[in-house]
Amino acid sequence: MRNLVCRLLMIAAVGGLMAAGAAQSAGTGTVAGIIDVYKTEVKTHGAKSFKDVVVYLEPTAPADYPPPVEHAVMDQRGLVFIPHVMAVQRGTTVDFLNSDHDRHNVYFLYDDTGETLDIGTWGPGQSVSHTFEKTGLVITLCQLHLEMAAYILVLEHPFFTMAEINPETQIAEYAIRQVPAGEYMLKVWHKKLKMKTGNVRVTVAAGQTTTVDVAITRAKYAE
């Protein structure tokens, strides 16, 4: 009964996000919904948990969007990369901080090609910046502390958001706002699970919220 109540409360919260859609910019809409963990359960506690889900939209027609001027930040603290999962648009600069008392390194492994890049080693209180010019999943490591790892998903467009799985309900809620009206493919990235039914085609209408609920699951249950 408790899980059912939690699920209903989360669905109601998503409804609140839809009501907020009236305040969005002219010519744009919102895509919102819930992400349900299907036939499995994920660990949601700890710095290296599986709570993080990236939800993003890819336009079906070619379009260019300038990267943000503001830098993203990934810290190294307590021998952990924080955040553990990050999504950025291609062309974004990320500042890698060292908030520990040890020296740290940042070493990239590009998941799709196997290529690697070492951007350096630096001491406590220092930082190094890197601009991501290639899309795809970048596994981020420290060669001085092999237990450290993080994941940076570099996307072509700015229409994405981070969602967190609730430990009790195993559901996450999301909303992607300020999306220009048009056709998109909705996709989800999770460190362990896959979308149950594959990518979803979405039509975004100006001034409206489109509801898209999806499920993520182990590969053997995905269609």
Rank of each mutant, 00 (worst) to 15 (best):
F81S: 01
T121V: 15
L57Y: 02
H157N: 09
A32V: 12
G123S: 10
H145E: 12
M1I: 12
K196I: 08
A13C: 13
Q208M: 07
L4G: 06
W189Y: 14
D100C: 08
L4C: 06
M148I: 12
A149G: 09
M195N: 00
S25D: 15
E183Y: 07
E156M: 10
R90V: 12
E41A: 15
I216C: 05
H145K: 10
V214F: 00
D118M: 12
A175R: 08
G33P: 01
Y110M: 13
K194W: 11
V188W: 00
T217Q: 05
G198A: 02
Q208T: 15
I176R: 03
K187T: 06
A47R: 04
V154E: 00
P83Q: 03
T209S: 14
V179R: 00
G29L: 02
G16L: 14
M86D: 04
I176D: 00
A87E: 00
V202G: 02
E164I: 07
F50H: 04
A61D: 11
A222G: 12
A63G: 10
I171C: 08
I216Q: 00
V55H: 01
S127G: 13
P180K: 01
I176T: 09
A206H: 04
P66G: 03
V94L: 07
P167T: 02
I119C: 06
V42Y: 04
K48P: 13
P158W: 01
E173Y: 15
Y151D: 07
D52P: 06
S127Q: 13
S25F: 15
W189P: 00
Q76T: 11
V214Y: 00
I119Y: 03
E173S: 09
I152P: 01
T161M: 06
Q208P: 10
Y221H: 10
P180N: 02
P66T: 03
L17G: 08
L137E: 12
A19L: 15
F132Q: 02
F96N: 00
I165L: 03
G21R: 08
L9K: 13
F96L: 06
D64Q: 11
V212S: 01
H45A: 06
S127P: 05
T28L: 07
P59N: 08
E133C: 05
L155D: 01
T211I: 14
P62T: 14
E183A: 09
V73T: 12
A222S: 14
Y107N: 10
E115S: 09
V53L: 03
H71I: 13
M74F: 06
A175D: 09
W122Y: 06
G198W: 02
C6W: 05
L8T: 11
A215K: 03
T140A: 02
L146G: 10
A172G: 04
M148G: 03
D102K: 09
G120R: 05
E70M: 04
N3I: 13
K192M: 14
T161A: 04
V128F: 06
P67W: 02
E164L: 09
L79W: 08
A61Q: 10
M1N: 09
I176K: 06
L4R: 05
G125A: 06
V14S: 04
T60E: 13
S25C: 14
F81G: 01
T93Q: 05
F108D: 07
W122K: 07
H145F: 13
P66W: 04
